[in-house]
Computed example of a mutant assay.
Amino acid sequence: MQVEHKVETQGFDRRWRPALLAFFARRIGDRAEAEDLTQEVFERLWRSDVEVERPEAYVFQIATNLLSDRQRRLRVRDRHRQYVEAEERRDIEFLDPYTVVSDRQRVERLVQCLEALPDRTRTIFILFKFEQLSQDTIAERYGISKSAVKKQIARALALLAAGMGEG
């Protein structure tokens, strides 16, 4: 019959600290974190009421479990960070000064091209594209056919495309 005994924590620091520090440092490469994990092993041993047959194995099982917990936490944090970054980038164009200036110049050019359209063509185009009135409604308001409205919109689109240099 084997006798089990509680892990003796007195003098434990001197006996196990160097081995635990080396164990953690080899696996994680961070001395400060190795110190924290070593301290956590001591804390868990101190709180433990478990009777163990082989204290050395028990100590390193705690250390191994701490490393597993650490890896799990890091994976969860990494996945969360990746998710947050993906959400932040989704449907968002990153602005740089050249894009902003270029887009402002295009808008200014579009406004100039709109102003250069004949009055009736411009008004029908704006009512259709920006005010989102139907072609039927525009035709009714101007007393013209729906076909005439379509021709005015097509004319506006062609003139705007030519003015913007898009064919």
Score class of each variant (00 low, 15 high):
Gln2Thr: 09
Gln2Pro: 12
Lys6Phe: 12
Lys6Arg: 15
Lys6Thr: 12
Val7Tyr: 03
Asp13Asn: 04
Arg14His: 09
Arg14Gly: 06
Arg14Val: 08
Arg14Pro: 00
Arg15Asn: 01
Trp16Val: 07
Pro18Ile: 11
Pro18His: 13
Ala22Ser: 15
Phe24Gln: 08
Arg27Gln: 14
Gly29Arg: 11
Asp30Leu: 09
Arg31Ala: 15
Ala32Tyr: 11
Asp36Glu: 10
Asp36Val: 08
Asp36Cys: 03
Leu37Arg: 10
Gln39Lys: 08
Glu40Phe: 05
Glu43Trp: 06
Arg44Val: 04
Arg44Ala: 14
Leu45Cys: 10
Arg47Gly: 07
Arg47Trp: 04
Val52Gln: 01
Arg54Asn: 15
Arg54Thr: 07
Pro55Ile: 04
Pro55Gly: 02
Glu56Pro: 00
Ala57Asn: 03
Tyr58Val: 07
Val59Arg: 01
Phe60Gln: 07
Gln61His: 12
Gln61Asn: 15
Ala63Asp: 07
Thr64Ser: 13
Leu67Thr: 05
Leu67Trp: 06
Ser68Trp: 05
Ser68Asp: 06
Asp69Thr: 03
Arg72Phe: 05
Arg72Ser: 05
Arg75Pro: 00
Arg79His: 04
Gln82Gly: 00
Tyr83Lys: 07
Tyr83Gly: 00
Tyr83Cys: 02
Glu87Tyr: 01
Asp91Glu: 14
Ile92Trp: 07
Glu93Ile: 01
Phe94Cys: 01
Leu95Ser: 06
Tyr98Asn: 09
Thr99Gly: 11
Val100Ile: 14
Ser102Phe: 03
Asp103Met: 09
Asp103Asn: 06
Asp103Leu: 12
Arg104Glu: 14
Arg106Phe: 03
Val107Pro: 02
Val107Glu: 12
Val107Trp: 06
Glu108Tyr: 08
Arg109Ser: 11
Arg109Ile: 03
Leu110Phe: 13
Val111Glu: 14
Glu115Cys: 11
Ala116Tyr: 12
Arg120Cys: 04
Arg120Tyr: 04
Thr121Glu: 14
Thr121Leu: 05
Arg122Cys: 09
Ile124Arg: 07
Ile126Met: 13
Ile126Trp: 08
Leu127Glu: 13
Lys129Trp: 02
Phe130Met: 07
Phe130Thr: 04
Glu131Ile: 05
Ser134Ala: 14
Asp136Pro: 00
Ala139Lys: 09
Glu140Lys: 12
Arg141Cys: 09
Arg141Thr: 11
Tyr142Leu: 15
Tyr142Pro: 05
Tyr142Asn: 06
Ser145Tyr: 08
Lys146Cys: 02
Ser147His: 09
Ser147Gly: 10
Ala148Glu: 12
Val149Ile: 09
Val149Thr: 07
Lys150Ile: 05
Lys151Trp: 02
Lys151Pro: 00
Lys151Leu: 03
Gln152Val: 00
Gln152Arg: 08
Arg155Lys: 13
Ala156Lys: 11
Leu160Thr: 03
Ala162Glu: 15
Ala162Trp: 05
Ala162His: 12
Ala162Tyr: 07
Met164Asn: 06
Met164Gly: 02
Gly165Pro: 10
Gly167Ile: 01
